[in-house]
């Protein structure tokens, strides 16, 4: 009697373990179709929630330099700041190509915001740079403009919705934590914005292309499976 009940419980344990494995494997196989259903809803929700108002700054004393982890996918590209030009083109009436001296003369915006990584960590950082909005104004986007693409010197690529791109806290930054932006953090220019996850904030940005359509290649990590909107 006792032996029999032991056998049943052993069988039950095996059944539970088997069911668990099936669920685990199915979870990996099905994540993509699940995302195809849920991501459009979540992206719509993210766009709806996005406030055009700036989020409150943290005090400068709150910065956490030791918490900022350096992530890149191909290492640090070498860029000569003397010959560097930022190109803004696409669906604009006035394509521009700006050197760093010109960009440094534009209004400098400083903000202390939290950078949140998709991996789960976060760091409060002070950023200094120009508003992307101000740069786009120079190029004068066409009324059909809906998306902004960012190409980086290391081959990384990203695309953003226009509303997030013209947010008052979306910067092309060249200062970090009170100093010149270090090369490993994206010098000479990188995207910095509290409203997007870290993978949306391209480093070493060399080209900004305004488009009216979302192109098939939407972003390095997005093309591998991450959500495109990535709002916070």
């Amino acid at each position: 009697m006792l032996e029999e009940s032991n056998k049943i419980s052993r069988r039950q344990i095996l059944q539970w373990a088997g069911a668990g494995l099936v669920v685990n494997v199915a979870g990996t196989l099905l994540y993509d179709p699940i995302g195809r259903i849920s991501m459009p809803v979540n992206e719509w929700m993210g766009a709806l929630l996005l406030s055009p108002q700036p989020t409150p700054d943290f005090p400068i004393s709150a910065i956490e330099p030791d918490k900022l982890i350096v992530n890149s996918y191909r290492g640090v590209p070498s860029i000569d700041p003397a010959t560097f030009k930022l190109k803004i083109s696409g669906a604009v009436t006035n394509p521009v190509s700006l050197d760093l001296a010109t960009i440094h003369q534009m209004p400098l915006i400083s903000m202390v915001t939290r950078l949140v990584c998709v991996e789960g960590w976060a760091a409060i950082v002070q950023w200094g740079g120009v508003r992307l909005r101000d740069l786009l104004t120079l190029a004068q986007p066409l009324p059909t403009a809906k998306y902004v693409y960012f190409k980086s010197a290391d081959g990384y690529y990203e695309s953003w919705d226009l509303a997030s791109s013209v947010h008052p806290q979306t910067l092309l930054a060249y200062q970090m934590n009170g100093q010149d932006l270090p090369a490993e953090n994206g010098a000479p220019l990188r995207l910095a914005a509290p409203i997007k996850l870290g993978y949306k904030q391209s480093k070493w940005v060399t080209e900004v292309v305004v488009t009216s359509e979302l192109l098939p290649k939407r972003g390095y990590w997005e093309d591998l499976g991450y959500e495109w909107f990535g709002g916070l």
Binding site: N24, G27, T28, Y31, S38, I69
Partner: peptide
């Protein structure tokens, strides 16, 4: 990153993007 990891058998999604897809679908 060097901290305590959870055994894969009790995780769902296979990798970070898969886990996030499930998490943000199931939340609804």
């Amino acid at each position: 990153r060097e901290g305590i990891h959870i055994p894969w058998v009790v995780t769902l999604g296979g990798w970070l993007a898969g886990g996030r897809n499930w998490h943000f679908a199931m939340m609804w």
